[in-house]
Computed example of a mutant assay.
Amino acid sequence: MALITSQQLGRFFEKYSDINLTFTKDVVRATGLLHRNTHIKCLGDHWPCVLYSCSMKEARVIANLSKSFYEKLKSANNLVSLHVAFAQEDKSSPLSFFVTSKINGFTPYDKTKPNLNFLSLEYTQRPPDDLIVILGSLAEANLNSAQRKEERIEITADTIRKLGLKSKTALVYIEGIPRKCIIRDLSFSGAKLILPGIGKFLMNKNALFRFELTDRNKQLSLNGTMIRVETVAGRKDLVAAAVQFDETKVPYEYKLLINDYLNTLRSKKGNSN
Rank of each mutant, 00 (worst) to 15 (best):
R161Q: 15
K269C: 09
I19N: 06
N259D: 04
E253D: 14
A241G: 11
F188E: 01
F118G: 02
S75E: 15
L82N: 00
L265W: 04
L208M: 13
A63L: 02
S68L: 07
Q147V: 12
H39L: 06
P178K: 06
F23E: 01
Q8Y: 05
S68I: 07
V133P: 00
A87L: 08
I174V: 08
R266K: 13
V232K: 09
A2I: 08
Y252R: 00
G176H: 10
F118I: 04
D246L: 12
L3C: 04
Y16H: 11
A170F: 10
R29H: 12
K102C: 11
K102T: 11
Y16I: 06
E140L: 14
L220I: 15
A85F: 04
R29G: 01
S92G: 13
S101E: 01
L165R: 08
I258V: 11
N104F: 10
S267H: 10
E230H: 05
H35E: 13
S92A: 14
L51A: 08
G44Q: 07
I132A: 00
Q147A: 14
Q219N: 14
N77Q: 15
I40Q: 00
S96T: 10
K102R: 14
D237G: 04
F13I: 05
P114S: 03
L51G: 01
K168W: 11
K168P: 06
I153V: 11
T38R: 02
K192M: 13
Q88N: 15
G190I: 02
Y123P: 01
E151N: 13
L73I: 05
R152H: 06
C42L: 03
N144Q: 09
K57M: 10
L262N: 00
D130M: 08
